[in-house]
């Protein structure tokens, strides 16, 4: 089963290597990983999607806690949350296909960000399923190039999974 972890880390050099290295050497599977700065420039937030059962997830979380650069971990899988991915797709669209592609674009609320003689480049955000659906829909036209970010996520409502002054690691035991 896929789990979504929101992980706050010190914005120090090597922190990504530490986290990625931990996953590979302990045999945990990363489905996607997105990282960037938070409201505090010294803190970065990683959204990691991990594949594994509860036992694996417990180990992932505990081993991550042991990294000195990891400040806080939230498994938000069971929470109500908003999640988004961003995709850029360069798709074949000569004058015979252009209208159809633009219509698809409208349906998915994607935007055209570049136009070539034979291609259109689209930008679209949405959850994993929507991005997959867009990709599948455009595939018959011939996708020339595709790049997508990992998923980023945030819990709905006022519950805070961000960095607070007393953002202690939550002990699970």
């Amino acid at each position: 089963m896929l789990h979504t972890l929101a992980v706050l880390v010190e914005n120090s050099p090597g922190v990504l290597t530490r986290v990625a290295g931990l996953f590979s050497r302990r045999g945990f599977n990363i489905d996607s990983l997105a990282v960037g700065r938070t409201e505090d420039p010294e803190v970065s937030r990683m959204t990691i999607v991990v594949d594994g059962d509860d036992r694996v997830l417990e180990q992932v979380t505990k081993q991550l806690h042991k990294l000195v650069d990891v400040i806080k971990i939230n498994d938000i899988t069971a929470d109500e949350y908003v999640d988004r991915e961003l995709v850029l797709i360069k798709v074949n669209a000569d004058h015979t296909q252009r209208v159809e592609v633009i219509q698809i674009c409208d349906v998915f609320r994607a935007r055209i960000v570049d136009m070539g003689r034979k291609t259109l480049t689209l930008e679209c955000t949405g959850n994993h399923g929507k991005i997959n659906a867009l990709e599948e829909t455009l595939r018959p036209y011939g996708i020339k190039e595709l790049v997508r970010t990992g998923k980023i996520a945030m819990v709905r409502g006022t519950k805070n999974t961000g960095y607070q002054e007393n953002g202690a690691k939550e002990e699970s035991l």
């Binding site: 180990q59 505990k62 035991l173």
Partner: peptide, 17 residues
């Protein structure tokens, strides 16, 4: 002392960290 040792190799009924 290390919570990551609990359940790493063996299922544990009573964990004391």
């Amino acid at each position: 002392i290390d919570p990551a040792e609990i359940g790493k190799n063996m299922g544990v009924d009573i964990p004391v960290v």
